[in-house]
């Protein structure tokens, strides 16, 4: 399922005092199976952008194509689209409502019209995918810990078997281990299935570690759309729009300035360590 956005624009509360252009001429193409990161400061339009992806918000300009079909055509099955594009909102645990975890995860598949047996099967699979242990299935979702609630909520979307998974800051408010666990699980899912994953995050370190492509949003427009290394090499421009690069990038640049012959394209700690070791070795040899 390839996604194509053509000149998408969106204007909020048109004709009122609050009128605001949230998206401006956004054109993108995301092939099936990509792991994409979206970054941008609060109010840059990234949340608006992802809500367009499953038709929750309708663009005021331009068009969106899934498998080359325009989703704004009159008889396009929007409900079907929502089944294929799973959207996990920020703090998704705030939408849990059933008496027990398993039933809550069944909500999605039930809305898709599956039999109770099939719903349960899908729910169990999804819960397993997010690594929630079986002993929690019968518990009230409100009694789980923060990290467990978050998993249950993500499972609620996964149980719908989306082809595209969009996550809006899935690690907000979690502790470091919880953050790594959730992201590792998502990366694992991405590897195991052919799912497209679109990850919105404020953590440049996480983005650098997991995604193969970064879309940078600024004032409703796409500022950069490239590989992490390429995007983070523009760290000065990123700073000017209120963003930053991973710490490693800054360290490498500083080292280079101080005369250590390192390549500055490392974005991960391991890469940086490797680069530094190599540079030191080279320096010693000379």
């Amino acid at each position: 399922m390839s996604i194509r956005l053509e000149h998408v624009g969106y204007v909020y509360s048109e004709g009122t005092a609050y009128q605001k252009q949230a998206l401006k001429d956004v054109s993108l193409e995301i092939p099936q199976g990509q792991f994409v990161g979206v970054i941008g400061h609060t109010g840059s339009g990234k949340s608006t952008l992802i809500q367009h992806l499953n038709g929750l918000i309708k663009a005021t300009e331009g068009a969106i194509y899934y498998n080359d079909k325009n989703i704004y055509e009159k008889d396009y099955p929007l409900k079907e689209l929502r089944n294929q594009v799973g959207l996990v909102f920020q703090y998704p645990e705030h939408q849990l409502f059933e008496a027990d975890v398993l039933t809550d995860v069944c909500f999605g598949p039930r809305n898709q019209g599956f039999s109770p047996k099939e719903c349960e099967k899908r729910a169990r699979e999804a819960l397993e995918m997010v690594g929630l242990k079986e002993k929690y299935y019968a518990q009230s979702p409100f009694e789980l810990s923060g990290g467990q609630k978050r998993r249950a909520a993500i499972a609620g979307v996964l149980a719908m078997h989306p082809k595209v998974l969009v996550l809006d800051e899935p690690t907000a408010g979690l502790d470091p281990k919880g953050r790594d666990e959730i992201l590792d699980q998502i990366a694992f899912l991405h590897r195991e299935s052919d799912m497209t994953v679109i990850l919105v995050s404020h953590s440049m370190e996480d983005i650098a570690r997991y995604v193969e492509r970064i879309i940078v949003m600024n004032q409703g427009e796409v500022l950069f759309d490239d590989t992490p290394k390429e995007v983070f090499s523009h760290y000065k421009e990123l700073e000017s729009v209120g963003l930053a690069a991973p710490q490693a990038v800054y360290i490498m640049h500083e080292l280079k300035e101080r005369g250590l012959p390192v390549f500055t394209d490392a974005t991960l700690i391991e890469e940086a360590a490797y680069e530094i070791m190599a540079a030191l070795k080279k320096e010693k040899e000379e």
């Binding site: 502790d175 710490q247 360290i251 530094i276």
Partner: peptide
């Protein structure tokens, strides 16, 4: 303890592990 260290500290630690 499910915690972490600052990125810089992590890098220094990584370098130490490699014998630096």
């Amino acid at each position: 303890y499910r915690l972490d260290v600052p990125q810089v500290t992590l890098l220094a630690d990584e370098l130490r592990k490699r014998g630096l």
